[in-house]
Design a protein around this nucleic acid. Sequence first.
DNA 1: TTGGGCATGTAAATGGTTACATGATTTC
DNA 2: GAAATCATGTAACCATTTACATGCCCAA
Lengths: 178, 178
Amino acid sequence: MANEKKINYVILGLLNHEPLTGYEIKKRIDHSLKFFWSGSFGSIYPALEALEADGCVEKEEESSGRGKIIYSITEKGRALLREWLVKPAEKDELRYETLLKLFFGRELGREGILDHIQKFEEKIRNELLILEGYAANLEKVQDEEEHKYYLLTVRFGIETYRAYLAWCEEAKAVLQKD
Amino acid sequence: MANEKKINYVILGLLNHEPLTGYEIKKRIDHSLKFFWSGSFGSIYPALEALEADGCVEKEEESSGRGKIIYSITEKGRALLREWLVKPAEKDELRYETLLKLFFGRELGREGILDHIQKFEEKIRNELLILEGYAANLEKVQDEEEHKYYLLTVRFGIETYRAYLAWCEEAKAVLQKD
DNA sequence: TTGGGCATGTAAATGGTTACATGATTTC
DNA sequence: GAAATCATGTAACCATTTACATGCCCAA
């Protein structure tokens, strides 16, 4: 029921693997999902509250220590997650400011565009290293069924980034031959 | 000056090439920028008004016919565009619901995930054909300096999509061997 | 003559981020 | 004992989309 906020499914999907605090959910998003998704505290905490009111997640307040609030998924939540999972993906969106600047590149000129490509390349190179690290780990530790799927998303990132880097070389070559 | 709405720069960038109506701007976005950017009438028309009030664009109302409003860029607008172009890109964002579902794939299972990959592959295959058509055209007609930059963005799309398709094959193979 | 594309616009809702506030705990 | 990180939360803002309203022009 309810609305279409994707953050709800992100949360349910993560909790379906293990109980987590809001803070930990944010960390999972920033590390494991970073390549293809994002989410802020400002959306996570309210969503957790709404999901709990809906009976899709349960909270358990730690009595000792810092009093962390640990959420876990309920049967109802799992059903909602499944319902969403079977539906076709409705939006695969790429929004690259770098490409926008490149498209209007004539006004900026060759040098400026080469700068943008340079920065883009560096960023991608760094992120590729991280992804390759993830992949190496996941290939080593294949103890959970989940890992197969995690690895597939990481492989997607790796192959995409390698294509980006190949394009960078091509683009630099095109621009440098006057 | 003013705000950071990217739609402003999209409009200025397009108008920097040729005068256009709001409707035509929308078409350019949906065709030429589609792969890496989007924008709706609900953002274009108000932005045009604001840009005009700011003196960044000028409008000319067609007296005959339908009374179209044709916008062109001013020197001030071009300066604003340039100012933005030199700044480093701040956000290159990819948000793929397909990958999100894939990440949580264990709950859906092999068959369901293969369906998602299948649909994704078909969509990419279609869009790749379109991009290859663009590239062929741009390679043939190299009469404007702009074309070099347009072609680079198209090449980016083509190489990315080819990597996606290669990944699809790999993913299907991984999932099909039990 | 009717349906599709051209053309302009607006109001409301959306889904989200940013920035802030607060404080506990761990680590150097 | 200072700094970094853990941890929860909220209010204000944000760019943008969606859905709607309106009407013209052209081709089959």
